[in-house]
Amino acid sequence: MNKTIYLAGGCFWGVQALLDRVPGVVATEVGYANGTVVNPSYEEVCTGATGAAETVFVTYDDEKITLVSLLRVLFDAIDPTTLNKQGPDIGTQYRSGIYYVDEKDKAICEEFLSRLQHAWSAPIVTEVLPLHNFYAAEEYHQKYLKKNPGGYCHIRLD
C-alpha cells in the first residue's frame, strides 16, 4: 500500500536524488513545506522570510520499505544535529524535518529520532511536525541532479 511522508534534509536536489534510488520509493517531488507564504518562489524561500523548508514529498510502498528504513536512508546521509544547515548550505530553508500526514507516523518518527540520538553527542534538532502545507518547487528543480549530472549536492551519492 502506498503511503506518504515529507522529508527535509538540506538542499532538496540531493535528498530527492538519494530517495529516488531507494527500492520501494514510488515517487518524489521537491517543494517547500510548512511556510507562511502561499506558493512561494525559490527566490522567496531563499530569503528566509517564508519559513518554508526545502522538502521532498515521498510516496513509498510500505510493503517494500518501512518508514523507519526510509528514515534510516535519509539520516545516514545528513547531520540531524545542525540547525538550519546541511553541508555548506545555511538558512532556515535547509533545516532537517519530518512532516507527517498520518498521525500514526508521528510516534514512529519520534521513536526513530530518540534511538538515533544515542549515535550523536550533540542534540538532534530535526523537527517532527504535522504537514501544514506543501507547494511544489519550480519545474527546473524537479529531478535536478538527473537533468544536471555532476550538479551541486551536499549528499554523497556514489
Rank of each mutant, 00 (worst) to 15 (best):
V73H: 06
D102T: 07
Q86C: 10
S96E: 05
T92K: 14
Q86L: 14
Y100N: 04
V73F: 13
D105H: 15
Y100E: 02
A77I: 04
T81G: 09
S96K: 05
A77P: 08
C109S: 12
D102Y: 10
D76G: 13
K106C: 02
T81W: 12
R72I: 01
Q86S: 12
V73R: 09
R95D: 04
L74P: 08
R72M: 14
T82G: 10
V101E: 05
Y100K: 02
I90P: 06
I90W: 12
R95N: 02
F75H: 03
T92N: 13
E110K: 04
D76F: 02
D76V: 01
R95Y: 03
I78K: 03
A107T: 13
Q93H: 14
K106I: 08
V73Q: 08
N84F: 05
E103S: 04
C109A: 10
G97L: 12
F75N: 00
E110A: 01
D89G: 07
L71Q: 07
Y99R: 01
G91P: 08
D105I: 00
I78W: 07
L83M: 08
G91L: 09
G91H: 13
T92H: 14
P88K: 14
Q93A: 07
A77G: 11
T82H: 03
E103Q: 15
Q93W: 10
I90Y: 14
A77M: 04
R95W: 08
E103K: 12
Q86D: 03
I78E: 04
T92G: 10
S69W: 02
F75L: 00
Y100R: 01
T92I: 09
Q86I: 13
G97K: 03
A107Q: 09
R72C: 10
L83P: 00
K106S: 05
Q93V: 06
Q86H: 07
T92F: 07
Y99D: 00
I108G: 05
I90N: 13
V101A: 05
V101Y: 02
D76P: 05
E110I: 00
